[in-house]
Design a protein around this nucleic acid. Structure first.
Length: 553
RNA sequence: GCCCCCGUAGCUCAGUGGAUAGAGCGCCGGCCUCCGGAGCCGGAAGCGUGGGUUCGAGUCCCGCCGGGGGUACCA
């Protein structure tokens, strides 16, 4: 990327200045190349002189001039300017910019790729909601974010696997089974109340009805006997199928669906626990088994096996991460959790570290929860109370792409409010259509060109000199930089904003530059290349977000 | 109480410690003899609050105010 080349140039300028005796031999901070907000400040800039001033004992502006004087030449850079109070600004040459159109066209979707991950094996696990009820609208946020992050990391050179972990073994399954059994019994006229801690949602009645169709009354047990496990398993399977379908309708597909039961069956649970036990971190007390995190600096210990004999969520998660790192050998693991799980972050990190896994191989992204609202009314998300807005409902009423765009455009740190009424009303105003419209518009232009320009091949991009043309090229060139930034920060929410900016500069170009012009076939052919490149970059951006890039709307 | 996240335009949200803080929606005013007006151009309007660090703070640190989450042998 050109930005990296500029960083190397700055480094070389420093070396040359030192050798020439124009700069004392001082330690160099990281060279940061930034993008100025204003075009007059150039395409790229560095504030290195400001940072070096004190150590070098010189005025920033003079340091800047020294660096500029020693700056090696480059075909891509038209001029280097020093601006007060101490910036060095780099202006890209128009000719070089125009050439990039050919490079972008040639690269296609690979234009967004950057060699950052070097083939490292990374897992992204997200959503992983319990299969005890349908996904709610808030789960869509993690689906959008996780799947996009996975594609971004892929583009950044990582070998990525996505995973959905579903809980088919814990205590919630027991609650679920008792609830569905209550509903099932009710269908046969028995007085069986839904347990106090059970799932109140009406979908449980539907599941019971499905069970009745499938099993008849064969699962009825004598009064007072516990719920049959088979009924629970049946329900879990049905709900898992709903979840798969909802995610598929959002365009989210996983490489692996991982069952919690696997943690036990594969002995990962036992092996993980054994490591911690060997280190003296497992203690028994008050009838339960504890992970002694206080020995690792925490302010309280964590229960791993309840006095009932059932492992806790944390315990299975320890085994699960043993499996991720020590069995499946991912170089990096990224878990996306809602902030309601934040209390588990430290204990799990401590466990991973205690298993001798380098702590920075595990990244747990905590996303703030989605608050749902319908007009004035706030809706509490709770599967157990049954008062919820399902993801399916939102996808159907707002549309897949608009839904993805909404969830994706907010930082994970922002608690967002999803007003279902507003979302429905504004779905036509969703920015995603603005971006898709730009893509469709280009498709239209290309069709017109086919009719009117018999020979539309081989445009000469050096004819592209209009400010609107160059602005479009400049914006396209940001995509690889953005992919790299997102892969580093794990913040995919920048992508929709970028796509919109790209669409904006395209629309501006469209207003100012006529592409298909019978009187000027050479310029038309050059501009056709430009819009074809823009179409490709728009499609790539939309593709990274899991959205469609339609030729017609 | 303690821990984590957040307070930026009327609303929903962006903003790698840099040079004059942005977008969408909403509001006001303009633009179709011409490739798709789901578009373009212009306008009004903002960093919760008080200190500190820095050449430079919306961004980092501390206090206060406000919102969300956690602090379970639930996940």
């Amino acid at each position: 990327m050109i930005r990296d080349e500029i960083a190397r140039m700055v480094e070389e300028a420093v070396d040359r200045a030192k050798k020439a005796g124009d700069l004392p031999a001082i330690a160099l901070p990281d060279i940061v190349i930034e993008r100025p907000q204003r075009l007059e400040h150039g395409d790229y800039a560095t504030s290195l002189p400001l940072r070096l001033a004190r150590a070098a004992g010189a005025k920033p502006i003079e340091l800047g001039q020294t660096l500029a004087r020693h700056m090696p030449p480059s075909d891509a850079i038209e001029r280097v300017e020093v601006a007060p109070p101490g910036f060095v600004n780099f202006h890209l040459s128009k000719g070089w910019l125009a050439q990039q159109v050919d490079s972008i066209l040639e690269a296609g979707a690979a234009f967004a790729e950057v060699p950052l991950g070097k083939g490292q094996k990374v897992q992204v696990e997200f959503v992983s909601a319990n299969p005890t009820g349908p996904l709610h609208a808030g789960n869509g946020r993690w689906a959008a974010m996780g799947s996009t992050l996975a594609r971004v990391l892929q583009a950044a050179g990582y070998q990525v696997e996505t995973e959905y972990y579903f809980n088919d073994a814990g205590s919630q399954v027991d609650v679920f089974t008792r609830t569905i059994y209550a509903r099932y019994q009710q269908l046969f006229g028995r007085e069986a109340p839904v347990p106090d801690d059970g799932y109140a949602g009406s979908y449980m009645v539907g599941l019971a009805e499905q069970a009745r169709e499938r099993f008849g009354d064969s699962l009825l047990r004598p009064e007072g006997e516990p719920a049959p496990e088979e009924l629970g398993r049946f329900g879990i399977e049905q709900v898992t199928e709903w979840i798969r379908n909802d995610l598929a309708d959002l365009g989210v597909h996983y490489d692996h669906w991982y069952r919690e039961q696997t943690v036990y069956d594969s002995k990962a649970f036992d092996k993980g626990m054994a490591i911690l036990r060997k280190k003296g971190l497992i203690v028994e007390r008050e009838g339960a088994v504890w992970f002694a995190t206080t020995q690792l600096g925490a302010d309280k210990d964590e229960v791993v096996v309840r006095s009932s004999g059932l492992p806790t969520y944390l315990a299975t998660d320890i085994g699960y991460h043993y499996d991720k790192f020590l069995v499946r050998k991912f170089d990096r693991v990224i878990d996306i959790w809602g902030s309601d799980h934040q209390g588990h972050v430290r204990p799990l990190q401590l466990a991973v570290e205690a298993m001798a896994i380098e702590p920075d191989r595990l990244t747990i992204l905590i996303g703030q929860l989605v608050t749902l609202r319908r007009g004035e009314e706030t809706i509490k998300i709770s599967k157990r109370s049954g008062d919820m807005v399902t993801l399916r409902e939102v996808i159907e009423e707002v549309g897949k792409d608009a839904c993805l765009y909404f969830f994706l455009s907010r930082s994970a740190d922002a608690q967002i409010e999803f007003d279902l009424e507003l979302a429905k009303r504004q779905s036509n105003d969703n920015p995603v259509y603005y971006v898709q419209y730009a893509h469709a518009r280009i498709a239209g232009i290309i069709n017109v060109a086919k009719e009117r320009l018999p020979d539309s091949q081989g445009g000469d991009t050096s004819l592209l000199i209009h400010p609107a043309e160059l602005a479009l090229i400049r914006k396209m060139l940001q995509l690889p930089e953005l992919v790299e930034a997102m892969a580093r920060s794990l913040e995919p929410h920048h992508l929709p904003h970028y796509a919109q900016e790209l669409a904006t500069v395209f629309h501006d170009f469209y207003e100012n530059c006529r592409v298909v012009d019978d009187d000027n076939p050479d310029l038309s052919k050059a501009r056709l290349k430009l819009v074809a490149a823009a179409k490709s970059v728009l499609a790539t951006s939309l593709g990274l977000m899991g959205m469609s890039a339609p030729d017609r709307m």
